[in-house]
């Protein structure tokens, strides 16, 4: 199940665990990323919490936790090479895996068609 947030994150949900990243649209808007800070594995976040920070040449931006949950895995590859987020934002450029506290909450998020409508 692929879901999207208004903050331009995507979630691929399998068995109660969401792989989370930023959308192609967000990656384009941010420009070339030079630094990514990921959360600790085991950390818990509420929906809207600052789960990660990304920095482009120009500015820093937060990546919000899209739903309540616990971080169970992070993608160290994007720390070593932040440009992965620009080259493959919805694939190899994923950020973290989130064990959802309430998997049913995901139903309220946008599907791909709704997100495409949002970003035009």
């Amino acid at each position: 199940m692929l879901k999207f947030t208004e903050e331009h994150e995507w979630l691929k949900i399998e068995g109660g665990v969401a792989t989370v990243g930023i959308t192609t649209h967000a990656a384009e808007q941010l420009g070339d990323l030079v630094f990514v800070e990921l959360p600790e594995v085991g950390a818990t976040f509420s929906k809207g919490g600052d789960a990660s920070t990304v920095e482009s040449v120009k500015a820093a931006s937060d990546v919000y936790c899209p739903l309540d949950g616990e971080i169970v895995e992070v993608n160290e590859a994007i720390v070593a090479d932040p440009s992965l987020v620009n080259s493959d934002p919805q694939g190899a450029g994923w950020f973290f895996k989130l064990k959802l506290a309430n998997p049913a909450d995901a139903d309220a998020l946008m599907d791909e068609a709704a997100y495409k409508e949002l970003v035009g």
Binding site: G31, D32, V34, S56, V57, K58
Partner: peptide
């Protein structure tokens, strides 16, 4: 223009 198609990194 803050950047063109190439992006800040390539332009720099």
């Amino acid at each position: 223009p803050v950047q063109y198609a190439a992006g800040v990194m390539k332009e720099h």
